[in-house]
């Protein structure tokens, strides 16, 4: 299997706070890989570092064999990866369609209508609401929009930060079904989740983060049955 993303010995600081302490992990082509862990374990920090929003003080990040450390934050998306951030962060005052257009900001205008149709196929609800301001959407719809917006750059690697946060269980199921469908359609997925049960059940492989370090890893199934993981993250 080809390695899409390879992070080695990442150290990330917020000022003097050492948030990520030597994290290494890999994502292979076509996989769903998840990072699970408690609040404050460093999951989002790791993802934001890969996405270019934070700079590691030490370590390397390679995407498809090429280092992306020196790449300007706004150019990371052109490399072929997209990050769907925590808390959705849709542009509330822009319409649904404008949000999606922003997702395709780096791509030529002529290719946008086709990608837009692809996204509407995954998220028919967004098509119904395309003229509406994103701020008026429900939480579930905003999550769909955030994912659709990330998809608009046609990423080969899609990173999702807490897509289930604050959603009703039925919507969580729906979002995870869509993640699996996107993966089947050929997108490699790196998923950060507090809902460890859901994340592990769809993941090929998983890493467990605790206070900035990876303390466990394995296939999704193995970790679902792992006693320490069960105890810490799956409620017994």
């Amino acid at each position: 299997m080809k390695t899409v993303l390879k992070c080695e010995n990442l150290h990330v600081y917020y000022g003097s706070i050492h948030a990520i302490k030597g994290v290494s992990f890999e994502v292979g082509e076509g996989e769903i890989v998840t990072l699970i862990g408690a609040n404050g374990a460093g999951k989002s920090t790791t993802l934001n570092t890969v996405g270019g929003l934070l700079k590691p003080r030490e370590g390397s990040i390679e995407f498809e064999g090429k280092s992306i450390l020196g790449v300007a934050p706004h150019k990371v998306v052109s490399e072929g990866m997209a990050l769907c951030p925590e808390g959705r962060r849709v542009f509330a005052q822009l319409s649904v369609k404008e949000n999606l257009e922003m997702g395709a900001y780096t791509r030529p205008a002529s290719e946008i209508p086709e990608t837009l149709e692809m996204v509407y196929e995954h998220f028919p609800r967004l098509k119904e609401r395309q003229g509406q301001m994103a701020g008026t959407l429900s939480g579930g719809e905003q999550q769909m929009l955030a994912m659709g917006r990330a998809l608009m750059s046609k990423p080969r690697l899609m990173m999702l930060d807490e897509p289930s946060m604050g959603l009703a269980p039925i919507l969580v199921d729906q979002i995870f079904e869509i993640i699996e469908a996107l993966n089947k359609a050929g997108t490699t997925i790196l998923l950060v989740e507090q809902n460890a049960q859901m994340a592990l059940s769809i993941a090929d492989r998983a890493y467990v983060l605790e206070t900035g370090r990876i303390v466990n890893s394995g296939t999704g199934k193995d970790l679902l049955n792992d006693d320490s993981v069960k105890k810490a993250y799956l409620g017994g």
């Binding site: 996405g51 706004h74 998306v77 052109s78 822009l94």
Partner: peptide
């Protein structure tokens, strides 16, 4: 308009 709302998210868009 996107930048005025959320610089981080706008950066992620490229």
């Amino acid at each position: 308009r996107a930048v005025s709302e959320d610089k981080g998210a706008a950066t992620l868009m490229g």
